[in-house]
Amino acid sequence: MIKSAADFGSLIRQRRKALGWTQSELAVRCGTGERFIVDLENGKPTCHLEKSLIAARVVGIDLGDLKAGVGPADRIDDDLGFLPKFP
């Protein structure tokens, strides 16, 4: 389960390496700069969402709704304790 920008970036890096691509190659395939890929893989929380989703699709990560078709009564608490608390 992806719980943070760092987790997401790590997954992108793992998939990119499994494909045998450099960060530069992934950037070209995504239509972004290499700096964006570096930031994304390092878990920078302010990376542009649209570009991040493109990178995920390019490396084969399916970000479909994992709860599609599940009714509210069937949902179980997702253990959201990892989320930051704001005053």
Results as ranks from 00 to 15, higher is better:
L11E: 12
A56K: 02
A27S: 06
A56D: 01
G60W: 04
G81Q: 08
I37W: 03
D77Y: 11
L11K: 08
G81K: 00
D62V: 07
A6N: 09
V70T: 12
I12H: 05
G33E: 13
K17M: 15
L19W: 03
I2H: 11
C47V: 12
G60F: 01
E25L: 12
G9V: 01
G20I: 06
R15H: 15
R15D: 07
I61H: 05
G31E: 04
L63M: 14
S52W: 03
S10T: 11
I61W: 04
F36K: 02
S10E: 13
I2G: 07
C30F: 09
L49C: 04
L19Q: 13
F36L: 09
V38K: 10
P72I: 07
A5Q: 07
L83V: 06
F8R: 00
C47L: 02
L83F: 13
C30G: 03
I37P: 02
G33Y: 14
W21G: 03
D74K: 14
E25M: 10
S52T: 02
G71I: 12
P72G: 01
L63S: 04
L19H: 05
N42D: 11
C47Q: 04
P72T: 10
R29E: 13
I2T: 06
G43H: 05
I12E: 01
L40W: 03
P45Q: 13
A55C: 06
R57C: 01
K85E: 15
T46A: 13
G69K: 03
T46Y: 14
G31T: 03
M1A: 06
C30R: 00
G71K: 09
I54P: 00
A6Y: 08
R75Q: 12
L83D: 00
G69T: 05
K67I: 10
G71M: 08
P45I: 09
